[in-house]
Design a protein around this nucleic acid. Structure first.
Lengths: 175, 175
DNA sequence: CGCAAAGTTCAAAAAATATTGAACAAAATG
DNA sequence: CATTTTGTTCAATATTTTTTGAACTTTGCG
């Protein structure tokens, strides 16, 4: 299979970009690019996930590069990121030494991966900063201490609520 | 009250930055800066909210500018953004024509504001893009159409799950 | 009205982030 | 083991986002 030419429906002709992507592929890539951007991820990450999402078959890095027209570096880093939050999986194929990638489609796994790998650590970091804060507050004048203890207590309460919601939300995401 | 000098505890001395902020104020500002960054908001927005959060009294824009050392432009835009997601409120004071600002402290209101003003619109936009996609898919070859309809259905299912979770989560956030 | 204080806007500058590509490393092939 | 294919790394570059500040608008006050 030299190139997937002619196998699919209409092609978007775009001398430069979108080389060889069908309209639907382009639309899906755009969709995930806007999702990625909403989530503060680089565009290339959205592109890659979108392409994998629209592809029936798992794809190898060089195919991704060719279809999206990105650099090796971007592709490598984008794939690394997506793997790191378990949004994609590696697929091995006999007789081919490249790694192939396919998207995780279950919302539960997607959300869990993002939560565990990306959000969790930052939350932990925040909690630690809060603890340090307490020490500083303890040394304030009684007056100020009261105000600040009150406010910090507020953040604590936010954290507790968050902790309660998470497992509950995950239960919703079965499927 | 010319300046809050001497009223609070120790000062962080920093010839340039943090002019006149106590250690706790600095720590709280940093805390919210890292939250802001986590949520993909500009640093200045985190700084402003952090300062208001740490302040017993509502503050006016010129006070915020002085304490954080930001430009008028940044302060104006940051305050606008925070107001637009209802993370802060305007407070009026007799005999002072400046607007004073105080932070919203209820997680429920904070979350609701963010959801309604910032996230909701983008989700709607996404839903619309999906609808357009359907049209394109309808014109594909039966083979491909099947695959893509399946995938799009997956996104639909994500959306439905999201819709179910939101009101539920809001119920949790009673404050 | 005329003035001054408060606040907004936006083009230009600065800072932060993402992307590229060439050099490098690892691993299979023959 | 030399060679080729696959994939990574990272300094340089390109792009995007944020910040600044000066010009401008709005508002309240005498």
């Amino acid at each position: 299979m030299t190139q997937s030419a002619g196998k699919n429906g209409k092609r978007v002709r775009n001398g430069d970009s979108h080389r060889g992507l069908s309209q639907v592929e382009v639309a899906l890539v755009e969709f995930f690019v806007s999702l990625a951007d909403m989530a503060g991820m680089p565009k290339s990450v959205g592109e890659i996930y979108g392409l994998l999402f629209s592809s029936e078959e798992p794809l190898a890095m060089d195919e991704i590069i060719a279809k999206l027209g990105l650099s090796k570096g971007s592709a490598s880093q984008g794939l690394r990121f997506l793997r790191s939050c378990q949004a994609i999986r590696t697929v091995y194929r006999v007789g081919d030494r490249r790694d192939f990638y396919e998207p995780e489609l279950g919302l539960r796994n997607l959300a869990a991966g993002l939560l565990k790998e990306k959000i969790g650590p930052r939350l932990a970091e925040g909690a630690q900063k809060l603890a340090q804060l307490e020490e500083v507050i303890a040394r304030e004048s009684p007056n100020l201490r009261k105000v600040h203890e009150n406010r910090i207590g507020r953040i604590r309460s936010w954290q507790r609520t968050g902790q309660k919601i998470i497992p509950f939300a995950l239960k919703f995401l079965k499927g």
